[in-house]
Each structure stands twice: as structure tokens, then as C-alpha cells.
Design a protein around this nucleic acid. Structure first.
Lengths: 189, 189
DNA sequence: ATTACAAACTAATAGTATTAGTTATAATAA
DNA sequence: TTATTATAACTAATACTATTAGTTTGTAAT
């Protein structure tokens, strides 16, 4: 009947990512993935070590896609324009990839170089964008943390439906980013 | 041997809260709670409906404690002083109650009045503090969202160890709140 | 002292991840 | 072309989880 269905790591990750983004991270189970692939769950172990390893793959994919999206958004732009475009890219990513976005924030193992590198790339991108504002090293660190707090906080709250919708979230986001830019200008002077 | 141990809802919630704050929300299981209370897990069902209901109790406790802490922090203070004090209270709460803090952000069921009310109280407190800045209604909404994004974003990232510790997080938080205050002053003019 | 409520129990079911061991297919060697 | 071999997918089993049903028994009220 079925042996040699053609399962492989990529297929499994893709299926898991789909479940994560449509049904939420909590529904990423080997059982659900196996069901979706018409396979018994032990079969998955021929391609992965277990669920934790698979989730790490998803984190990695989330970080990679996010980095690509932000890089693309900022490409060829400078200062405010780059920052604003990147910020909207971030928000969009969290909306499009609900589950993967959540997973980008799971703390990596202390010795997981690959994850650390993927995270660092995003920080580096933010740092590059902020370099247009000519801050001191210490203020750059403050600014990166502030920016991440704003982006993550807003995205996360929106995702958790923490905003009543009487006023467009989009508009609040725009005002928030504008405020951050004036904060940057103050830091730089 | 054991019947009539003296189990009750409060004891169960307290034990669950302790596990949440020390071992993380994912480790809040009926099995773990029962072990800690030297009881078999079905016994818990004499006092709770099930795990989801228990987690809702924890959310509610988190929201209540957070509200108390923020209210206390802002009490008798005005404007910048109230805002800053409240902000530090928020950060402190997320540090002291890792697990409960996470649970305060789980989206409430649409018809869960009690949860909605508990959430609204915190929004109301923020709104009261911000009223000292004389914003328009719409800008007040933007400002509440911005403030929540900042507070949640920073707390959440810190909790997830997303900050390298070369520079004190505390200092970044201080700069961030100062930036928010100047954002408020701009909005108000 | 008896009754009766309900707290805690045991037993059982169903769903999860995971391991061990089997079968059979696809790729390779003869 | 056939025999060999590696391994993909399988079944069976174990160990957790939550939850339900049904039993025992302490405790409180009569």
C-alpha cells in the first residue's frame, strides 16, 4: 500500500509551518502533522529527532523569513524611510505568519550557534538602519531595544486581539513609529 | 489513609500559580499540581472543571494582581511621576510573576465578562494617568496602545532573554519611558 | 446513631510523544 | 536480470497527559 510515500524533512517543516500559521503554535503536534500527511506519526521520526527539534526548525525559518522581509523592506531606503518601511514589514510579517512569528521569540539554547546567528542578523539590520541617526554606541543599544519593544509589543498585542477596534490599529502604529523617530532625533542631539 | 485532605479551589489556584511563576506556564499541568498536593489528579475535578478553567483563574489572578500593583504604584502621583512609577511597577510585576504575566495576555472568550472587566480596569488606569496630558480622545487611544506596546514589548523581550546584557536593561527602560513622555507631549500640542 | 453529601479514590478511555522491532520498497551490486 | 542492502513507513508497546465514571469513606447534619 503505502511505504515510500516520499516524506522528507522539508515537507514536514512546510506542513508544520502551515499548521502553526493557521491553527496556532499549540496545534503543531506530530499527530496533527502525520494526519495531514496521511502517515503514522512514528514515520516522522525517520526525518526528525522529535517535536522540540522540529519547533527549532520552525523558529529558524521564522527568523530567516522575517529577516528577508525586513531586509527587502528597507532596501535602497535611508533613515526615516527605511525605518518606517521596515516597521510595516515587521507588522505585516507577524500578521501573515502568526505561528512562525511566535516561534521566532522562543529563547534559543545558549550554545545554538545557528539560532543565535539568525537572531543576530535581525538585530544587525536594525542597527544598520539606526546608524543613519548617528547615535552613541550606548544609545544605539537603547534604541534597538526600544524599537524591538515597540515592534514586538504592538504586533503581539494585535495578534492577541488586545486592541478594541474602534480606532484603526494601523493608525496607532503609524503614530507610534512617528513617535519613535522623534525619540531617535532627541537621542541623537 | 487520605480522604478529606482539605483540598479547595484556592489551594489549587495557589499551587498552580506557583508552578506558573517558577516553572513556566507550560508546566502548569493537573498532574504536576496533583503531585505537589499529594493527591491524585482526578481529585482536582471536585473543585475545578478542567485545566482550561484553571488557567482562566490564573489569568484573572494575574490581571487582578497587576492592576493592584499598577494602581498602588501610581497612587497619589501625577503626570510624569505617575506614569514612570506605574511603568516600573509593570516591569517589576512581569519579573516577579513570569507565568501569571504571560497568562494575563491570553485572549479572553468574547462573552467572558469577568475577564473583560479585569482587562478593562487596567486600560482604565492607563487612561486615567494619560488624562493628565490632555489628549484628544483619538490620541488617547493611540497613546494607550503605544504605552501598552512599550510595556508589554519590553517586559516580554526581557523575559525571553532577548536582550544581551552588556548594557543594563533597566537603563534602556528608563530611556524608553522618557521617550514615551516626550511623544505624549508632542501629541498634546 | 443514622443518613447523606461530597471529597478523594481507583479504573478506564482517549490523546499526546516516543522507542523498538518488522516489513517491504527502492536503489545498488552481482 | 536477479540478489543484496539500506531505510522509509509500518505496527506494537510504553509512558505521559486530561478527563469521565463509578466506588469508598470521612464528616457534617439529623
Amino acid at each position: 500500500m503505502s511505504p515510500r510515500v516520499g516524506l522528507d524533512l522539508l515537507t514536514i517543516i512546510n506542513t508544520a509551518a502551515e499548521i502553526a500559521d493557521t491553527d496556532g503554535v499549540d496545534n503543531v503536534t506530530l499527530a496533527a502533522i502525520a494526519r495531514k500527511l496521511n502517515v503514522r506519526s512514528p514515520s516522522l521520526f525517520n526525518h526528525i529527532q522529535g517535536l522540540p527539534e522540529l519547533k527549532r526548525h520552525l523558529s529558524l525559518r521564522g527568523l530567516t523569513l522575517l529577516n528577508e522581509k525586513l531586509t527587502e523592506a528597507a532596501k535602497g531606503k535611508m533613515k526615516d524611510e527605511a525605518l518606517i518601511s521596515m516597521a510595516y514589514g515587521y507588522l505585516e510579517f507577524s500578521r501573515e505568519h502568526n505561528g512562525l512569528y511566535d516561534l521566532t521569540l522562543s529563547a534559543p539554547e545558549p550554545n545554538d550557534e545557528e539560532m543565535q546567528t539568525a537572531s543576530r542578523k535581525i538585530i544587525q539590520l536594525l542597527s544598520n538602519i539606526l546608524s543613519d541617526y548617528h547615535l552613541t554606541n550606548e544609545n544605539t543599544i537603547h534604541a534597538i531595544r526600544a524599537l524591538r519593544s515597540i515592534l514586538h509589543g504592538f504586533s503581539s498585542l494585535e495578534q492577541k486581539q488586545a486592541f478594541n477596534l474602534a480606532v484603526e490599529p494601523e493608525e496607532s502604529f503609524q503614530v507610534l513609529i512617528a513617535g519613535f523617530i522623534s525619540y531617535l532625533n532627541q537621542l541623537g542631539s
